[in-house]
Nucleic acid binder design. Structure first.
Length: 776
DNA sequence: CAGTGAGCGAGCTTCCGCTTGACTT
């Protein structure tokens, strides 16, 4: 039996650690937290703020085995991460495993190398209870905010909604960005650029230059072009300046998510899943980190790799400092475990993500790129405005040889003159004009958030942690506050005035603006919830709320203040606001909008968030007749729907006609518009307007659906009417009593399966019909 | 998946952050 038990958070880390430590050490993993506030109850005693912890059901087995191992070991080493959550994990372990706080050895390491580990073992400390208390304060605050705020939403808006310190502010960012875009009015100005020609013997070269002035109106631009007729253009100044560019720091979770989105098109959660696999295969360091730090081991290996591949001149050892708010730096930056491995084996996606990490890591240890920027000024005789041509050539590529960061906004990336080489010119030289154009340009509206740019913003605000960026994005979508979608751009025309050979010609061109793909868009529910929270709980919604409470947590961690006092102070302000909002009786429902009267009946027509989402309502509950309801169509919103559009929604359901002796009617429900015939539903595709649906079109849709159904049913069995072999997206599967069962790989031809064989397969996978009630 | 909803009524929902599997129609 081992003398020593070491407990870490991650099983992959445990595996590598065991190799270094030898026979006297057993290494186990806690798989993150082993205890949390009670799941069902409030979990905090609000009289004295005592947290009520429990071990989650799915952790019981693990905790039991940790306990057994701890009892058998002479010494237990708690080696969870060196941050607030890690300290708390160690403390909970000590509590649950009945370890003596004074005896138990707490160790930390920032890199997994033999030296670092042995060093850590040499210098154990005890658990830092102040840091633990900072974590308890964080945990309790989040529980109070989330579990007090959410029920207010259930009462005032709709059941099952949620609010929280992080998610609600994330939604706010998206709602406000949408409003900025709505409010945005593009302004135009005329930008002037010129093409000059330079004759050099037989050859002619072009020199392109921009005017250092813009014109507000077309008239002004035209007047300027007209004035050029008798002007001369002379090179008045040439300056050459050496410039330098430095590489960006190695990856953190947030920057990896951003670059993988921009360069590889991965979603945030895709990136994390692929990175997890690379980590588990020992190919990269831990993927949830806010640190840009590289171990000395990695820096040395990078040095060597750069030297071998590119030569001495490309090497530059750099140490990076984190600039992000609230970073806790328990891990290294995300980097290859062995920088010397350029190629790995794995899936295509794994290879691409690894390559990205490898390049970024190495580039971070490479020399600056050197460029020479040339600025040529061209004087217009008798004019104050002048043309400026800029060119930039790379004189030494440095880190750019390997890696260049991408940007969300293409305009940001368009650094002026980059890569442009200017022809040889001399001061005083006179230039011939080929053409000069004044082009109408518009100011650009703000861009909607992508998953990755939202993560970037959250990190800037110090909201959320590396382990939560991906879950935040799925939470706000699951709650239907936000949806990922495309915005179709609109065509816009712009004018160009061209001055050439003494004449001005005008042309008009069109461009598409505001086309956006896979952007985060606020829903009606998201908008209404946001406005409601902004009105009643502005402190929680403040972008600095997290940053402010983090300061309190820091003081707790330093031992300067008592954590319960901090929470008590917060709660004494927060509780009355909850009570007040709960008891506040307003005439209208939150977010309701009155559209007007129905011309036919004079009844009031309004829109609001109903129990199942946005609805339009005709009449009020006080009327003798019950009010009518209709769900909003996709693309319609509470904020923008008009009275006419709302009235049109009441035209459904309607009867279209008869088919096979049964009526066909059209309606709209939870999953959009549908055709109902003979008790069966057929969805209407989104490109067909349900109000314009004809009987023939409906019949053909019904027939299409019937054919699809037929293809789906591969085989049925007389002796087992509830058993079927079906054809699905992933091939054949078994359907039995409402549940699906995968076919084993050796099942052979699905059409030859017998009922008994199917039942055996079901038996082997366990009867899901029984379990199903609990699930989803 | 399932095509609902103005009110007597049961019981439920919900937070953030630390970790992986188990689950895939």
């Amino acid at each position: 039996m081992q003398k020593n038990l070491v407990i870490v958070e991650s099983p992959a880390k445990a595996k590598t650690l065991e190799k270094f430590l030898g026979k006297d050490f057993k290494v186990m993993s806690s798989y993150g937290h082993i205890r949390d506030l009670k799941k069902k109850d409030f979990g905090v005693n609000l009289d004295d703020l005592t947290p009520e912890y429990e071990i989650p059901e799915d952790k019981e087995k693990l905790v039991k085995s940790l306990k057994t191992s701890a009892e058998q070991a002479d010494t237990v080493w708690l080696a969870s991460d060196e941050d607030r959550e890690g300290e708390a994990i160690s403390w909970h372990l000590a509590q649950v495993l009945n370890l003596d706080l004074k005896e138990t050895k707490r160790i930390v390491f920032h890199e997994i190398t033999k030296n670092a580990i042995l060093e850590a073992i040499e210098h154990p400390r005890t658990i830092d209870i102040n840091l633990v208390n900072a974590q308890q304060a964080r945990r309790v605050l989040d529980r109070i905010v989330g579990f007090k705020l959410s029920p207010v939403l259930w009462k005032k808006l709709k059941p099952s909604l949620s609010a929280g310190r992080v998610q609600s502010v994330s939604v706010r960012l998206i709602v406000e960005r949408e409003r900025e875009i709505e409010k945005f009015k593009a302004e135009s100005a005329y930008k002037v650029d010129a093409v000059f020609t330079i004759k050099e013997g037989e050859q002619t070269h072009e020199l392109r230059a921009d005017l250092n002035q813009r014109f507000k109106t077309q008239e002004e631009a035209r007047a300027f072009l007209e004035s050029l007729n008798d002007k001369t253009f002379t090179i008045s100044d040439i300056t050459k300046k050496p410039m330098k560019k430095s590489p960006v720091p190695p990856f953190t979770t947030s920057t990896l998510q951003q670059e993988a989105a921009r360069k590889l098109g991965f979603t945030v959660s895709q990136t994390m899943m692929i990175a997890q696999r690379l980590y588990e295969s020992g190919l990269i360091t831990y993927m949830r980190t806010d640190s840009v730090n590289l171990s000395s081991l990695c820096i040395n290996a990078s040095h060597k790799a750069i030297l071998e591949n590119f030569g001495e001149r490309y090497v530059k050892i750099r140490k990076y400092q984190t600039s992000s708010k609230g970073a806790q730096e328990a891990h290294e930056a995300i980097r290859p475990t062995y920088v010397e491995n350029h190629e790995i084996s794995g899936t295509q996606q794994e290879k691409r993500l690894y390559e990205l990490i490898w390049k970024r890591t190495l580039a971070s240890q490479m020399a600056d790129a050197e460029t020479e920027k040339t600025v040529v000024k061209i004087k217009i005789s008798g004019e104050e405005a002048e043309f400026v041509a800029t060119g930039e050539v790379i004189t030494f590529d440095g880190f750019l040889r390997l890696y260049k960061e991408s940007f969300d906004n293409e305009y940001e990336n368009d650094a002026d003159g980059e890569g442009r080489i200017l022809p040889a010119v001399v001061e005083g030289q006179t230039l011939e004009v080929e053409e000069i154009r004044a082009t109408q340009r518009f100011t650009q509206s703000p861009l909607r958030y992508t998953e990755a740019s939202l993560v970037k913003k959250l990190e800037e605000l110090g909201i959320g942690r590396p382990s939560t960026y991906a879950p935040i994005i799925s939470t706000i979508q699951q709650r239907e506050y936000v949806e990922k979608g495309n915005k179709v751009g609109v065509k816009r025309s712009y004018d160009i005035l061209k001055f050439s050979k003494g004449k001005i010609t005008k042309s008009t061109k069109t461009e598409v603006v505001g086309n956006e793909k896979a952007k985060l868009l606020p829903t009606d529910i998201g908008t209404v919830v946001n406005d409601f929270l902004m009105q009643y709980f502005p402190e929680i919604m403040d972008y600095n709320f997290t940053a402010n409470v983090e300061k309190d947590f820091d003081e707790i961690a330093e031992g300067a203040v008592d954590w319960k006092k901090v929470i008590r102070h917060f709660y004494s302000d927060f509780e009355p606001m909850i009570d007040k909002t709960m008891n506040d009786k307003t005439e209208h429902k939150v977010g309701e909008r009155i559209l007007g009267e129905d011309p036919a009946t004079g009844k009031c027509v309004s829109v609001k968030i109903g129990r199942y989402g946005p609805v339009v309502q005709m009449g009020s509950a006080n009327d003798e007749e019950k009010p009518r309801f209709a769900q909003l169509n996709k693309g319609q919103s509470i904020q923008s729907i008009t009275l006419e559009e709302a009235l049109a929604l009441f035209k459904l359901p309607r009867v279209l006609g008869e088919f096979e002796g049964k009526t066909i009617s059209i309606g709209t429900g939870r999953f959009g518009p549908y055709i109902l015939h003979d008790g069966k539903y057929t969805s209407i595709p989104s490109d067909i307007e349900p109000l314009e649906m004809t009987l023939d079109a409906a019949i053909s849709l019904i027939n299409q659906k019937r054919q699809a159904e037929e293809r789906k049913h591969l085989k049925a069995f007389d002796e087992e009417p509830e058993l079927e072999v079906r054809n699905g997206r992933y091939g054949a599967y078994i359907f039995y009593k409402g549940s699906n069962y995968k076919l084993p790989k050796n099942a052979g031809d699905p059409l030859k399966l017998t009922a008994q064989q199917c039942l055996d397969i079901i038996q082997a996978q366990g009867d899901k019909a029984a379990k199903k009630k609990k699930g989803a």
